[in-house]
């Protein structure tokens, strides 16, 4: 029996294993505790935060498509003030690094959130969402313009001393251009991909199915696209990557790591199997034993 080393590094962050919970699929960590021991994930990314509280989008907010789900939650969250008052203490109790996902409508919003979250050691790093398809007047607009990606990264770095992750949208022509802009702006880590902008139509009502018309597609349906983008970015960019998009099993996670991801995030899988993160970690271990791989780090980018 070989001793397995699952530790991985994301810039200055040390993770005990490479599997992270994706934002919006684990609440603030405690919501899952009945199903997933919060000490198990390599890190936890909490629900997207905006300066002001947001009630999110009208119902229906979710529908299923072949091997995928389409959501238009719309970043429902309690806002910065309430987050600091009630959620900070919750995440402070967690024993794994907690990443806070932030969203904004302007460059100043991102800078403001970064500055306000800077004093708290409970937060291990920021994941900057320049890619939410469900936020009117912001979100994805930033992630589709490389100049704006650069500026968001720059402004957040300017105001936040810890590691900064830029989460990229796949809804662009050239993902590498966006990744390079994030690096130029000072990003420490890149995460990709967010959901693909998509829709479904109810043929009985003859209307778009989601209350918000468009939503973000996630799940196994998008995995090949996500993998291709991680591979392209890893080929060109030197900073660490968190790969995500339809990871359901340990084998899926291994694919992303081979494509160049230093860690992976699991989202949709948790909505079906709340213990998915723990299962995926076990499946990664099984693969390592089978292939006699001692260190997960040795697999990063092996397919490049």
């Amino acid at each position: 029996m070989i001793e397995l080393d699952l530790t991985t590094r994301l810039a200055s962050l040390k993770l005990k294993n490479p599997v992270i919970t994706a934002s919006g699929t684990c609440g603030y960590g405690e919501e899952l505790k009945e199903y997933l021991d919060p000490d198990i994930p390599g890190a936890i990314t909490v629900k997207g935060l905006t300066i002001k509280p947001s009630v999110g989008n009208p119902a229906p907010r979710i529908t299923e498509t072949p091997a995928g789900i389409l959501n238009s939650i719309g970043l429902e969250n309690p806002g910065l003030e309430e987050f600091l008052a009630t959620k900070l203490s919750v995440i402070g109790k967690l024993n794994v690094p907690v990443l806070v996902n932030i969203s904004g409508h302007s460059l100043d919003d991102f800078a403001f959130l970064a500055e306000k979250l800077a004093p708290y050691p409970q937060i291990a790093g920021l994941e900057v969402n320049v890619s939410c398809p469900n936020l009117a007047g912001g979100g994805m607009a930033f992630g589709t313009d490389s100049e704006l990606v650069y500026r968001v990264a720059y402004r957040v770095k300017e105001n936040y001393p810890g590691p900064v992750i830029i989460k990229l949208t796949p809804n662009v022509t050239d993902i590498v251009e966006m990744a390079e802009a994030a690096v130029a702006g000072g990003a420490d880590i890149i995460s990709l991909i967010n959901t693909l902008l998509a829709m479904a139509i109810d043929i009985d009502d003859k209307r778009p199915l989601l209350g918000n018309t468009f939503g973000g597609l996630s799940g196994p349906a998008i995995k090949p696209v996500a993998l291709r983008m991680v591979y392209q970015v890893a080929s060109r960019v030197k900073i660490p990557i968190i790969g995500m998009g339809g990871i359901m099993t340990g084998r899926d996670a291994i694919e992303f790591i081979l494509a160049g991801a230093s860690a992976v995030a699991v989202g949709t899988a948790t909505l079906i199997d709340p213990g998915a993160v723990a299962r995926i970690i076990e499946e990664i271990k099984e693969y390592m034993i089978e292939k006699e791989i001692k260190r997960i780090k040795d697999l990063i980018g092996q397919a490049l």
């Binding site: 609440g27 919501e31 907010r61 979710i62 959501n71 909505l271």
Partner: peptide, 9 residues
């Protein structure tokens, strides 16, 4: 979707 309070669908 999730049925356990995490996704806000």
């Amino acid at each position: 979707a999730c049925g356990i309070g995490v996704c806000l669908s």
